[in-house]
Computed example of a mutant assay.
Amino acid sequence: MTIEDAERITELANEDRRPSTRRVYESKWSLFETFCDERGAETLPAGEELVAAYLSKRSEEVSLSTIRQDVAAIRWMHERYGAEDPTEGAGVSRVLDGINQTSSPEGGRGKKQAVLTKHVRAMVDALPLGEPEEGAGPAAIARHLRALRDRAIILVGYAGAFRRGELARIREEHITLNADGMEIFVPKAKTEPRTVGINFARTADFCPVRSLRGWTLAASIEEGPIFRAVPRSAEIAPDDQAEPITGKTVRNVIGDAAEAAGLDPDGVAGHSLRRGHLTQGALNGAELNRLMKQAGHADPRTTAEYVEDAKRMETNTSRDLGL
């Protein structure tokens, strides 16, 4: 084969997709590269386990159709460079089967309902926040304490756009109060450590700052993990013995509150507060760079996916067809 033959083959191989499709694949591939860079992993060829981990993570944030684009982009890039396609491996296939089984055609597994401000208010209103009667037993006291904790989890999680793991690991020493509200330092994040600002809310009943302080005061928390288990005995672990709750507990708190508020519990998950913050913020006119910073996204395209969802009825062109 001559040099001219090789050049012609390369040129045509690079035109194996329409320009619009290539742009989509290149964008998806860039996100995969970022994921690999964060883990110090090789992208070409990518290992099967790495691809499975990436798709599992993406399934918590994007729809089933986007996952399929991710797979196509990874396959395309490997084929272009003559590398073995990791998406054909049995491990990746099992992950994709799991995503398909737990996804709806409309929304996807990870693309749970965005819990907006009206939903958050309803979830808080559904909590049993009433003071226990005088002489109430441990179970009633525990129920009240748990409601105070859960209100703080919901409001702080929503206002801070936290990932559920970040929310579960907040410590007293990470919190700094100021005249406008509070700042919370996030030392362990998927990208870089960041500090999240949360303002006082206009309404005291739905204020994340006041709710958090109401919980810590009631639970006598002065240091260590903020969010702790509330046993039936109502005896919350002291500071020197306390362990943080898990991301699973955060998910259960959000799901239970959503169900009590009349929302579909199958459509709400731990990611719903974070998705809701970004969606509501976009609907209310928050700029992309501010949303990106609040969420701790390394790539603006990740944040843009939320904004696109929120603005779809404003940006679609069906109104321009003259129907």
Rank of each mutant, 00 (worst) to 15 (best):
E88Y: 04
E88P: 01
E88Q: 12
E88S: 11
E88K: 11
G89V: 05
G89C: 06
A90V: 14
V92D: 09
R94I: 14
R94K: 13
R94C: 04
L96M: 15
D97S: 15
G98C: 09
I99W: 03
N100D: 12
N100M: 15
N100Q: 14
T102V: 03
S103Y: 11
S103L: 14
S104W: 04
S104C: 04
P105Q: 04
P105K: 08
P105M: 06
E106C: 01
E106R: 14
E106N: 06
G107N: 11
G107H: 11
G107R: 14
G108L: 02
R109T: 00
R109Y: 14
R109N: 07
G110D: 07
K111V: 00
Q113M: 14
A114D: 12
A114N: 10
V115G: 05
V115M: 13
V115T: 13
L116W: 06
L116N: 04
L116D: 08
L116P: 01
T117F: 11
K118E: 14
K118G: 02
H119I: 08
V120R: 09
V120Y: 10
V120T: 07
V120E: 12
R121Y: 08
R121V: 09
A122F: 08
A122L: 10
A122W: 06
M123Q: 07
M123Y: 07
M123S: 03
V124Q: 08
V124E: 07
D125E: 09
A126H: 06
A126S: 15
A126F: 04
A126I: 07
A126E: 05
A126M: 05
L127Y: 04
P128T: 01
P128Q: 00
P128Y: 09
L129Y: 08
L129D: 02
L129M: 10
L129W: 01
L129E: 14
G130S: 12
G130N: 12
E131T: 12
E131M: 11
E131A: 11
E133S: 13
E134N: 08
E134D: 12
G135K: 11
G135E: 10
A136Y: 08
A136T: 09
A136S: 15
G137A: 10
A139L: 13
A139Y: 11
A140L: 07
A140T: 05
A140E: 15
I141V: 15
A142Y: 00
A142D: 02
A142R: 01
A142N: 04
R143Y: 01
H144W: 15
H144V: 02
H144R: 13
L145Q: 12
R146V: 00
R146A: 09
R146P: 00
L148E: 10
L148I: 06
R149W: 04
D150W: 09
D150H: 04
D150Q: 05
R151S: 05
R151E: 08
R151M: 02
R151P: 04
R151W: 10
A152Y: 01
A152D: 03
A152P: 00
A152L: 09
I153P: 11
I153C: 08
I154Y: 05
I154L: 15
I154N: 02
L155S: 02
